[in-house]
């Protein structure tokens, strides 16, 4: 098959490079959503730890009052 003229070939070359770019962008978007989920979990865990520390502090104060 003879080589395509530049105007016809250009769209195929652009499509190939855009497909590669799209694949990369989709991957990065998925990873970004995973990262934001991790961030949410870190916040939840931090709140859980703070809650547990508050409970522990409250119990210590109660023991001191009883003692």
């Amino acid at each position: 098959m003879p080589a395509l003229p530049l105007d016809a070939a250009g769209k195929y070359v652009a499509a190939a490079y855009l497909a590669f770019l799209a694949l990369l962008l989709i991957y990065v978007a998925i990873m970004a959503s995973k990262l934001s989920r991790i961030e949410r979990e870190v916040v939840e865990l931090a709140e859980l730890v703070e809650g547990q520390q508050d409970d522990a502090g409250h119990r210590t104060r109660q023991k001191e009052r009883v003692g």
Partner: peptide, 28 residues
């Protein structure tokens, strides 16, 4: 690499401009 593809590498004698796909397809 992509700058070299479009501004440095010549078009293929047989396939012409289409050959530019080679530089993303084959390394991948």
């Amino acid at each position: 690499a992509f700058a070299l593809v479009f501004f440095y590498a010549p078009n293929d004698a047989d396939q012409g401009f289409i050959f530019k796909i080679f530089y993303v397809h084959v390394p991948m």
